[in-house]
Design a protein around this nucleic acid. Structure first.
Lengths: 253, 253
DNA sequence: ATAATAATATCCATAATACGGAAACTAACT
DNA sequence: AGTTAGTTTCCGTATTATGGATATTATTAT
């Protein structure tokens, strides 16, 4: 009767994850009726679904009677993280071996990027990021590469939610400036973080095409080493690595 | 007809999470038939459930045709982590304010503990652990406090899977030694990490009772400051904090 | 304090949804 | 090329999830 978007999905499963996503979107705490106005599911249905989650530990009920994400999700998230990292690490390793600079992979997490995997450069230079670390989208190479894959409206809402701090004087300061830069990135196929996150650090990044979750990889290092000549070598390698990761991610059915 | 364990849970939801847990248990990659022998679900059912997860991004299918955890779980896990940490942080903060030493909360994640939240001590002493970090159970205060809540059989299988490295000469070396120690912990109500993880560092830890996922909190610092007199103050405070966290976690329906 | 209001939780008849046996298909091994 | 093991699709069946109506509990107003 009702035309469902997906053909053969199990409805209660789809719904339950939709609910979990909504709870996450809302910052971790939601009331039942908030959920029923966000979705167009009737209250009893939501309640039953959530009760199942609560008894299994994937959701919790707070003193407020609000619902929140449950502790057992942590393990699953960790597992997924580890797994994805394992998939990317050989490619990142190859980049580091060829280029000599630190390589990262990150995914979009709501309105920030999360670093999923890192292979540090052999140079004894401190790492600027760490796995699990969250960063803004507008001032990082991976962030901008990811944003360039999205529509302007999505970009606006992400940046509106996350804000636009300016860690250095080179950081992008306005949404218009950012949208312009994203245009350049779309044309060029990769993004450059020109000391926007930290002075003296330059980064080249590229989106992983067709990733289920928006994903990008990057190489970064001191401006002295990471220059135009570096880019000539790095960009094709980044493209190949991104493609390989994409293939591995998307090899379904 | 079939007597289901849980009264009012939504079956497909329960099953789907059972599958995700099994994938995680198996180290992130499973074949369909492995799943069907672990559960007693028929293959078509598992396949349909997984296909739903795959199309939504909560599972992935690898080139091997194996199934793995999907990237969208990362965000949910992060969200749960943040949320739980937020719940514990005021209590940890209170411990640090009263005792002047670093306080942590950790949960059991399969066969290791994961640090969920930390409030560092005001002393300029480096931190030994970081949020998100995984550690063994047998050589940490939180780990032993958590193990003491479990049965001997469960402890044995956890330690068998995780192994028993001995970072210091004070570390517990055998399963029998560990089970004895757990007995003492049960009697006393709290655990002591006596330089077992790192020389010079002592830690008092206590389980959070009735947590949906086994959970413990701790205070730790240099042996010079964290001594018997310290324990007299710390233990009642730990107990109160653990109880408060427990109440907040369990205040359901 | 007490009443009015709004939220959450439970019931239960209905039928739509998920189920799983059987068969088709695909890859891996001999 | 033939065989086996594993994965995927089909489809009739009935079990399972559904959601309108109702009861219950919290919250706010008086």
């Amino acid at each position: 009767m009702a035309e469902k978007a997906a053909g053969g999905g199990v409805q209660s499963v789809e719904r339950v994850f939709e609910l979990l996503e909504l709870i996450t979107d809302a910052g971790g705490e939601v009331t039942l009726s908030e959920l029923s106005s966000s979705t167009d599911l009737p209250l009893p249905t939501i309640h039953r679904l959530l009760r199942t989650l609560v008894t299994k530990g994937y959701a919790r009920q707070l003193p407020n009677r609000r619902y929140a994400l449950g502790p057992r999700l942590i393990r699953l998230g960790e597992g997924a993280n580890k797994q994805l990292g394992a998939l990317a690490r050989p490619q990142l390793k190859h980049l580091v071996d060829s280029l000599g600079e630190t390589s990262n992979m990150a995914v979009l997490d709501s309105d920030m990027v999360i670093y999923i995997a890192q292979v540090p450069s052999p140079h004894s230079m401190r790492m600027f990021t760490e796995v699990g670390r969250r960063a803004h989208t507008h001032d990082t190479g991976v962030g901008k590469a990811i944003l360039a894959q999205l529509g302007d409206d999505a970009v606006r809402s992400i940046v509106a939610r996350a804000g636009m701090p300016t860690p250095t004087e080179k950081s992008i300061k306005s949404i218009d400036e950012l949208l312009e830069e994203l245009g350049r990135i779309r044309g060029r196929g990769y993004s450059i973080d020109e000391q926007e996150q930290e002075l003296g650090v330059r980064c080249f990044a590229m989106a992983v095409p067709n990733a289920p979750t928006p994903t990008a990889i990057s190489v970064s290092g001191p401006v002295s080493r990471v220059d135009e000549r570096f880019a000539e070598k790095a960009v094709p390698l980044l493209r190949a690595a991104a493609q390989t990761i994409s293939d591995e991610l998307n090899l379904a059915s």
